[in-house]
């Protein structure tokens, strides 16, 4: 029994490193999927890695308007992403730092990251970055309750208050889970600045959200920003996969991690497909989309309580 627990925590540590290593790959898969849909060959899967390594080896250029806030934000963002990675479970392996109530910390540590990203955007004094920041806070303020109601549903279903226990305690198939997963997928797309909320490939600053906020970054700072964005994709993805992919508790940990990884790949594919077949919705319609996700989550919560 004890060896099993040790093995589990070993896998938690391994998950940290797997997450560190493979998070950018997911972005690569999304981009490749989009390319295939568009009939292009597309960039190599490992392109995000090449980009980041190159950025880390470059110097940096800063705007004269900026202050230390601008320089601190990428570091804070990276730290927050790593902290979130340490909390989220993967397969049967619990999060490295799983504890009662870690779900609140999980959501709020992402909030801290957003706070710094937004003030760093305002630090440049650029109207475009201000615009992106303004949209970012609007959408995330609406996505936050959806995330919490979704997690509350899972908490009611399993009676536990830590992400790892919650996910381990779930059993499928449940109608509530489908609803929660749908709501969380919307949150996932919104938080990761994906279509239909934000187009990561747009070339017009006026229409961007996340990309425009980091316009002024260069060199290692931009590398940090891109890498933490990839980690965020991984972390939120792992949460959704944990909730939706049914895993037998008797399954060996390594096998469950393998399934979870397959799930992550599927999620990246799905994201790529969504991006290929959908257009970005008008900004005025985004709140409606998030409200619909909220309605799904609340329905799920009501079902789970009866």
């Amino acid at each position: 029994m004890e060896t099993e627990i040790i093995a589990m925590y070993a896998f938690s540590i391994i998950h940290m490193f797997v997450g560190f290593a493979l998070a950018p790959l997911m972005i690569g898969i999304v981009n490749r999927t989009k390319a295939v849909f568009a009939g292009r060959t597309g960039q190599p899967f490992l392109q995000p890695y090449y980009d980041m390594v190159k950025l880390l080896r470059k110097g940096a250029v800063y705007s004269r308007t900026t202050s230390w806030i601008f320089r601190a934000a990428p570091v804070v963002g990276l730290a927050c992403a790593v902290a979130a990675l340490a909390i989220v479970p993967f397969g049967n392996a619990p999060g490295l730092l799983s504890f009662e109530g870690d779900l609140v910390f999980f959501a709020y540590v992402l909030g801290l990251w957003r706070f710094f990203l937004v003030i760093a955007a305002l630090d440049t004094g650029s109207a475009f970055e201000g615009m992106g920041a303004s949209r970012e806070v609007q959408f995330s303020a609406m996505a936050e309750p959806v995330l919490f109601v979704g997690l509350a549903t899972v908490a009611t279903l399993t009676g536990s208050l830590s992400l790892s226990d919650m996910i381990a305690g779930l059993s499928l198939p449940l109608a509530e889970i489908v609803l929660v997963a749908a709501a969380l997928f919307v949150v996932f797309l919104c938080e990761n600045a994906r279509i239909p909320f934000d187009d990561p490939n747009t070339h017009l600053e006026l229409t961007m959200i996340h990309e425009v906020m980091v316009l002024d970054y260069s060199g290692p700072d931009l590398g940090f920003v891109l890498y933490s964005a990839a980690l965020k994709f991984w972390v939120l993805g792992a949460l959704i996969i944990g909730i939706t992919v049914p895993l037998d508790e008797g399954l060996p940990v390594w096998a469950s991690c393998g399934y979870a990884f397959l799930g992550m790949v599927m999620l990246a594919l799905l994201t790529g497909i969504v991006e290929s077949v959908m257009a970005r919705v008008r900004l005025l319609r985004v709140p409606q989309l998030l409200a619909a996700a909220g309605a799904l989550a609340i329905c799920a919560l009501i079902f789970s309580m009866r």
């Binding site: 110097g59 940096a60 004269r64 650029s126």
Partner: peptide, 8 residues
């Protein structure tokens, strides 16, 4: 490490 105006 360079310095410039904000990219607008």
């Amino acid at each position: 490490v360079g310095q410039t105006v904000t990219w607008d």
